[in-house]
C-alpha cells in the first residue's frame, strides 16, 4: 500500500494523497483543508485525524500560534439526539 492511498480521516474516508494534493494546490490553512476535503468533519469530531490534517496543511502555511488551528465545537463527545434535545421517552 502506498502512502497516498492511506486513510487519514476514517469517518469521512479522506486519504493522505487527497489531503497532500489539496494542500499543495490551494496552499490552505488547516481549516480550509478541512472544509475542502471534509477531513475531521465526521462523527468523531476529528479526534483521530486532527493532528495529521494540521501538519499536512502546516507543511506549506505558517501556524498561527495564538489560535487553535482546527476549532473545537460542542458537543465535544457524542451525545444522542434524544438527550441533546431533552426528549424523554
Amino acid at each position: 500500500m502506498t502512502d497516498n492511498k492511506m486513510i487519514i480521516c476514517r469517518c469521512e474516508e479522506v486519504t493522505y494523497g487527497e489531503l497532500v494534493e489539496t494542500a499543495e494546490k490551494f496552499g490552505c490553512t488547516p481549516r480550509e483543508l478541512k472544509l475542502r476535503t471534509r477531513a475531521g468533519m465526521g462523527y468523531c469530531g476529528g479526534r483521530t485525524c486532527r493532528s495529521a490534517v494540521d501538519s499536512i496543511a502546516l507543511a506549506a502555511t505558517e501556524r498561527d500560534i495564538s489560535e487553535i488551528t482546527l476549532k473545537y465545537q460542542p458537543p465535544i463527545r457524542p451525545v444522542s439526539f434524544g438527550k441533546l434535545g431533552d426528549v424523554t421517552k
Binding site: M1, T2, D3, K5, M6, I7, I8, R10, Y16, T48, C49, S51, A52
Partner: peptide
C-alpha cells in the same frame, strides 16, 4: 497518532 500505511 502516527499515520502509516495499514494503520486502520
Amino acid at each position: 497518532p502516527l499515520p502509516i500505511p495499514g494503520w486502520t
